[in-house]
């Protein structure tokens, strides 16, 4: 596990400007920052799914910060901080990111399926209206076309929709 392209920012403002332009997997905030304690930045980044956040706070602020920020997915760590503790936090953040990416891929697949269903339904409606098929007939028709033409039901559906527009 390695991180490349490490960028540094000296204030929350500078961090926000950097995030406005680039994408990151991990953001490590050492609070307090000169322009804010750092918790707002931590929440903002985490809530908007802009990357994993490790928020390092002075020991005196730790309990309160950790409790408040956990609900936003922020990993809070107290300083002074040993090297091994820091790497533990980074490993946890990386694992969290990996899980997030898996869920995002699943979500994208589901979105695709929803789109497929919408398009296929539209094509079915056309077959029902214009070709006077029943719903099961339309369903079978699209399925058979997809098999015969060795393509997806979505492609068949798109073809039906396109041919009706010409």
């Amino acid at each position: 596990m390695g991180f490349s392209l490490i960028t540094k920012a000296l204030s929350a403002g500078e961090a926000r400007r950097t995030l406005a332009v680039s994408e990151f997997d991990l953001i490590v905030i050492s609070g307090p920052l000169p322009d804010e304690p750092g918790d707002r930045l931590a929440v903002s980044v985490s809530e908007n799914l802009r990357g994993e956040v490790i928020f390092i706070v002075p020991e005196s602020d730790f309990t309160q910060a950790a409790e408040k920020l956990a609900q936003f997915g922020v990993i809070t760590v107290s300083k002074p901080l040993s090297r091994s503790m820091f790497w533990n936090a980074v490993t946890m953040a990386a694992a969290s990111r990996a899980r997030f990416n898996m869920m995002r891929r699943e979500n994208e697949k589901l979105q695709q399926k929803i789109e497929d269903i919408k398009i296929i339904d539209r094509a079915k409606c056309i077959l029902i209206d214009r070709m006077h098929m029943s719903e099961p007939e339309a369903h079978k028709y699209i399925e058979k076309q997809a098999m015969d033409l060795r393509t997806t039901r979505r492609d068949v559906a798109n073809g039906i929709i396109r041919s009706m527009q010409s």
Partner: peptide, 14 residues
């Protein structure tokens, strides 16, 4: 415009 390290507006364009 960018903000400075204390969060105040500067005259440096983004």
């Amino acid at each position: 415009f960018k903000t400075d390290s204390e969060g105040r507006a500067t005259d440096i364009p983004f």
